[in-house]
Structure formats: structure tokens, C-alpha cells
Amino acid sequence: GAVTIAKYFAAKNQPELLGSSKTEQVEVEEWLSWVIALKALEKKQVVATLKKLDAHLSTRTFVALNRLTIADLLIFANVHKFSKEIKVTTMPNVLRWFDLIQNVAVKNNNIKDFDLIEINLKDVPEPVFAAPVAK
């Protein structure tokens, strides 16, 4: 399927997209199985799944490793049609990542398959900090 094709494509063109070492490849591949699960989801389950991605991305710039990999590209491709569900108030981390991937992968390579979503980077709520521990 699409995953196999994408893996083949990445291996032919930019091997580092798949992970350079064995450990790196394992981390990337774990996320590829997540892509397959994402594809099978009903629309109403999508928000809950995206919230899990949001928690994951709260401490990471990219999905796997600390650079762009095929995991980012495939999750982006499958999440793009749900971009309206990704709001700064509920999923700021997914929105931030989504904007990163659409700029570095889609816009910079002039790919026409995905509409660019306009995101106002300044329109963000006041960040909430962890509540102080009660004494």
C-alpha cells in the first residue's frame, strides 16, 4: 500500500528520512504502524487520536527522532484532511507541527497535492503553566 511505496521512495531518494541507524529505523517504523491505524479510523475517533499526537508533540519538534522523517510525511498526509479539527486552543502542538511540515515538506518542494492552510502564528492563547502544588 501507500506505506510500502513511501518507504521505497524514501529509500531511493533520501535514506536519512527512514532513520540512519538500526535504532533510528525502529523508532521511525513504530510510527508507521500508527499511520496504518490512523487510516482505519472513523471521523469521530480522529479528534481523540490527534489529542494523543498533541501530547507526544508537546515535548518534540518532529514525530520521531529530532529531524524530519517519513513518519512526519505520512502522518501529515493522513491528517491533512482533518486540518479543520486542529485548533490552537485544543491542539497547539499538532498545529505547530502541522505548520512546520507544510512549510518544510510541501511549500519548499512546491508539492500541489496539499492545500496550504493559513495559520496565524501570533493568535495564540496565554500559555497555561502547571498549577503550583498546594501546601
Binding site: 505547530r96 505548520d99 502564528l121 495564540v124 496565554e126 500559555p127
Partner: peptide, 14 residues
């Protein structure tokens, strides 16, 4: 922190 809410880099995308 607020500046970085929706930004992965301080300026632009690299």
C-alpha cells in the same frame, strides 16, 4: 514561551 507556541524555530522554518 508564548512566541514558541506555534513556532518550531525562533524565525521561519529552519
Amino acid at each position: 514561551n508564548k512566541h514558541l507556541t506555534l513556532r518550531s524555530f525562533i524565525v521561519g522554518y529552519q
